[in-house]
């Protein structure tokens, strides 16, 4: 049954317009060049995973994309967004919830400047149900588990209906089971909402199961740009996935290491 799934994406429709594109972007910290001459164009609605060894500049790339940092050279262009929609949201490794705001108010933070208080609260309530936290509106973040907190952070990131969602190892701190659960949730929500997703991860399996395309960063450059044209939903442990995982690991560690 693997073959027809592989074929299904080959009759590609016209490519979507780019959600963002990096043109010759570089970033230095002092004398240290972290990113050099990055070229990367991501079409709208694509799910991109970025993988690379620790310290190779993944977070830096994401911060540049989110506008939290400015490039030293090159250009980053982003697609225009409609009014009432946020352009890009970033989800961090830590949930970064406000401990003094109830769960529903934490989600409503995502509509700052986009909607009034009452509307924000109502929409936050709906979104909490979508991430599997129905009925937890009035809880303080401190009583939630790690996975639940990350769900709240996800709801907060999504509520503004961002055109691009940037995720910086959002599942890195979770246990293996919760992580798989969250991957399913993320994949499902991405499929229904159609935003562009950029996921930074250390987990090759996670990248392959979620992404349309995997970018391997090495020494500040794009070392590998690999399309994963597998049908969804994808299952952990499927042999097709293993093939792609091999390719990525080979790029990361050289052929002899595995």
């Amino acid at each position: 049954m693997a073959k027809p799934q592989l074929r299904s994406v080959e009759t590609a429709p016209a490519p979507a317009p780019p959600a963002f594109s990096f043109q010759g972007v570089s970033r230095r910290f002092g004398a240290k060049s972290v990113l050099s001459n990055i070229e990367l164009t991501v079409p709208q609605g694509e799910f991109v995973a970025i993988i690379g060894k620790s310290g190779c500049g993944k977070s830096t790339l994401l911060r540049l994309l989110a506008g939290l940092d400015q490039p030293d050279g090159g250009q980053i262009s982003r697609a225009q967004t409609q009014p009432g929609q946020s352009s890009i949201r970033i989800m961090f490794q830590e949930p970064r919830l406000l401990p003094w705001a109830r769960v529903v108010d934490n989600v409503a933070v995502g509509l700052t400047g986009l909607a009034g208080r009452a509307e924000a609260k109502a929409r936050a309530h709906d979104l909490l149900a979508q991430v599997g936290l129905a009925g937890r509106d009035g809880d303080w973040p401190s009583v939630l588990s790690g996975g639940q907190r990350q769900r709240v952070a996800l709801a907060r990131a999504l509520i503004g209906q961002p055109s691009v969602l940037a995720l910086d190892e959002p599942l890195g701190a979770l246990d293996a089971l919760t992580r798989i659960e969250m991957q399913h949730l993320l994949g499902r929500i991405w499929q229904t909402q159609g935003f562009t997703a950029v996921l930074v991860t250390h987990d090759v399996a996670e990248a392959v199961i979620l992404a349309d395309r995997v970018i391997v960063l090495d020494a500040g450059k794009v070392a590998l740009d690999l399309a994963i044209p597998l049908a969804r939903p994808r299952r952990h442990g499927h042999p097709d996935l293993a093939l792609y995982e091999q390719k990525i690991l080979a790029q990361l560690f050289g052929d002899e290491a595995i």
Binding site: A66, S86, F92, E94, R96, V109, G110, L114
Partner: peptide
């Protein structure tokens, strides 16, 4: 980190 979060959400 919370302050950065607030900024990214346009506060």
């Amino acid at each position: 980190q919370l302050i950065e979060m607030g900024r990214t959400y346009g506060m």
